[in-house]
């Protein structure tokens, strides 16, 4: 495997890993498969061109210097997710997981159509950090600077999150809640705080995906984020529901598998890439029904 391929696989896998982490965090604490996550990503993308709604997009917030812009967009993503939790998911907390999922889907539809009504169906150009496109030579591989930043950013985020989950009180509570929510509540874990915290982190991660996507593609489109959300959802299950590190590993794995299939398949089979990919997912599940990195608590009773 060439070094170039490693970088290509890491770049795609890194995006999926961050998105999968966003899904897994929420699933862990409240068994909710959040189908609105893709729209959280899209909203964070469109936040860059607020307040302009012209056909020719003008960077609004996006024109701010990066040290201000990045935290601001992360805050917007987190705020949106926390708001969604307070307005939609908190009142539904006693509903079944399926009802929760349909609720999240309805939320996604509402957000997407809201963006569509505000911005129209024509994609918009967002020139964010175009200078990051410069290729950099590393040994035999030529990698755009952005790709390196993505990989580094993913690594930093994962490390930071792992540290937070292990060291901080909120992190401890979240891990406890992900293991066994009822038990954790009985032992004094403040459920509202934990759930709001999980949503805030998840929304922040959605914003990270949004920034990476925009920097990579240079466009804002209302349908953005949907495909990534689905892959992330699959990665969460393949990784083992409730296992955060499993979700990250599976996200990386699916991204890498996709890049490898694209590179390895003969030309005629390449349009069927995703069919091979999803076939692989089914196979993995058949051999490891609990996911690759199932947490101890996920074992069924029989």
């Amino acid at each position: 495997m060439s070094l170039q391929l490693v970088f290509d696989a890491l770049a795609l896998g890194g995006i999926y890993a961050v998105a999968a982490l966003g899904i897994a965090l929420i699933f862990g604490v409240m068994r909710l498969v959040n189908f609105a996550h893709g729209q959280f990503i899209a909203c964070a993308v469109f936040a860059l061109i607020v307040p302009s709604t012209d056909a020719l997009a003008v960077l609004g917030l996006g024109a701010l210097p990066a040290p201000v812009l990045v935290p601001l967009i992360l805050l917007i993503g987190a705020g949106l997710a926390v708001l969604a939790e307070a307005l939609v998911f908190r009142p539904m907390r006693n509903a079944s997981p399926v009802a929760l999922m349909v609720g999240s889907f309805a939320l996604g539809v509402a957000l997407q159509n809201l963006l569509l009504a505000l911005y129209g169906g024509r994609p918009k150009a967002v020139s964010l950090w175009a200078e990051l496109g410069q290729p950099v030579q590393i040994a035999s591989a030529s990698v755009p600077l952005l790709q390196l930043i993505v990989i580094a950013a993913v690594a930093v985020i994962l490390a930071g999150l792992a540290l937070m989950l292990r060291k901080s009180r909120l992190g401890l509570e979240m891990r406890a809640a992900a293991e066994d929510f009822t038990m954790a509540r009985m032992l004094g874990v403040r459920s509202n705080r934990v759930i709001s915290g999980a949503f805030a982190l998840s929304g922040g991660l959605a914003a990270v995906v949004a920034l990476v996507l925009v920097a990579q593609t240079g466009v804002a489109d209302v349908r953005m984020g949907g495909q990534i959300m689905l892959v992330a959802f699959i990665a969460t299950v393949v990784g083992g529901m409730g296992s955060l590190s499993g979700a990250v590993a599976a996200g990386l794995g699916i991204g890498a598998a996709s890049a490898l299939l694209q590179a390895g398949l003969p030309a005629d089979a390449r349009p069927f890439r995703d069919a091979f990919l999803y076939g692989g997912v089914i196979l993995v599940l058949l051999f490891r029904p609990q996911g690759l990195f199932a947490p101890v608590g996920a074992k069924p009773r029989v």
């Binding site: 770049a11 999926y16 790709q147 990579q216 593609t217 349908r223 495909q227 990534i228 694209q262």
Partner: peptide
């Protein structure tokens, strides 16, 4: 695919 997040490969 149109919605591929990256076309690096």
């Amino acid at each position: 695919k149109n919605d591929d997040a990256s076309i690096a490969s």
